[in-house]
């Protein structure tokens, strides 16, 4: 089964110079956890997820802690979130993004999602322009339907 058969053909996106607050509003309204970031040619140049926002607002030593309960002051986290809301998306996005093409297999897409700990992955054409997305639940659904090996 190819990615083209399992992808969601939606090109909702955010631009590099739009703000974190714009991103949050977009995700809230569309019930999404992340969005592809594109340039003026519609090429995908990054990916921004809610996890990236949380990481940006946490102290840099958080990754060394075993549990969030070790964060000395959660209030600081909220203050940092307030400080980054006007930042540009490009300051917090993951780049280069993990991308897939419509002719790739769904097995390969699942492999990339699992290995990179992603929920959503942009699907691009040969010029790197956004065509849609694949997400975990669609791939899990395809697997339970026995379509993945087809």
């Amino acid at each position: 089964m190819k990615v083209s058969e399992a992808m969601i053909r939606d090109v909702s996106t955010i631009f590099e110079d739009e703000t974190i607050e714009d991103f949050i509003v977009f995700c809230l309204r569309q019930n999404k956890s992340g969005l592809p970031v594109v340039d003026e040619e519609f090429r995908v140049v990054g990916f921004l997820s809610e996890s990236d926002i949380i990481k940006s607002a946490l102290p840099s030593y958080f990754s060394l802690l075993q549990s969030a309960s070790f964060i000395p002051d959660t209030h600081q986290f909220v203050i940092r979130l307030g400080k980054i809301k006007d930042d540009q998306v490009s300051q917090h996005m993951v780049k280069p993004p993990v991308l897939i093409k419509p002719d790739d297999t769904v097995i390969y897409a699942a492999d990339l999602l699992i290995k990179n700990g992603l929920k959503i992955m942009p699907v691009v054409d040969d010029e790197g322009k956004l065509m849609g997305i694949v997400n975990r639940i669609y791939l899990i659904h395809a697997a339970t339907q026995g379509k993945i090996d087809r």
Binding site: S4, I8, R9, D10, V11, S12, T13, F26, R29, Q30
Partner: peptide, 16 residues
């Protein structure tokens, strides 16, 4: 819309 056909791609701005 997306269920109707693979030939349709959506790109709407969502409002309040």
């Amino acid at each position: 819309m997306r269920m109707i056909s693979d030939l349709i791609t959506t790109g709407f701005v969502h409002v309040e």
